[in-house]
């Protein structure tokens, strides 16, 4: 039964997440709230791991979430489920490529979907920040990373690396709260 639920949840993520990259995040966060498959804390670890593993973050996150819920079989089911909608839709769209692209309804829907997806992601950011309950030091680290990004934007790996290192050092001085 858990496998059917996994399949349905991730199929639905594949079907409704637009915009790539972290577009699956609001859905993954929702799962953390309504199922006890993984906690928000684990979701945060998951995104970190998915971001440093080769491959698209959305697929990696599905694999990881599936693995935590139902082992290797769960991972396989979640991965297949999250890419299956793309697969089906693209096979259909490929046949009428030109028409699809120039369709005014499609353009109009995407024009609305993009800012909506952006709003969803911003909401997840706020929710995760509140949920993680960072102490002053964590907040300071985030502020420093953000300030530095305003001057010079580095790759995601850079920020993950720095914050992991700072976490490691902070742990020795019991600053991680």
């Amino acid at each position: 039964m858990i496998f059917l639920k996994l399949f349905l949840e991730f199929f639905h993520i594949g079907l409704f997440s637009f915009g790539g990259g972290y577009a699956t995040l609001p859905f993954l966060y929702r799962i953390a709230q309504i199922h006890d498959w993984y906690t928000v804390q684990q979701l945060s670890d998951l995104i970190g791991i998915a971001s440093i593993t080769p491959g698209p973050v959305g697929v990696n996150a599905a694999t990881y979430a599936g693995f935590m819920t139902g082992g290797v079989a769960g991972a396989a089911i979640a991965t297949v489920a999250v890419i299956l909608p793309s697969f089906i839709i693209i096979i259909i769209v490929s046949r009428m490529l030109e028409k699809f692209r120039e369709n005014k309804y499609v353009c109009s829907v995407i024009y609305v979907l993009k800012p909506a997806a952006c709003g969803l992601l911003a909401a997840v950011g706020i929710n995760m920040f509140m949920n993680n309950g960072y102490n002053f030091f964590g907040f300071l680290l985030l502020a420093c990373l953000f300030a530095s990004s305003l001057y010079d934007r580095k790759s995601p790996l850079f920020y993950l690396g720095i914050s992991a290192l700072v976490g490691l050092i902070a742990g020795f001085f019991n600053l991680t709260g």
């Binding site: 995104i47 680290l141 976490g167």
Partner: peptide, 21 residues
């Protein structure tokens, strides 16, 4: 401790993704 730091890094990645979007 490392994952505590990674959690902060992930928030930073989300901020970047939001700005880009």
């Amino acid at each position: 401790s490392i994952f505590w730091g990674v959690g902060v890094g992930v928030l930073m990645l989300i901020i970047m993704a939001v700005r880009e979007l």
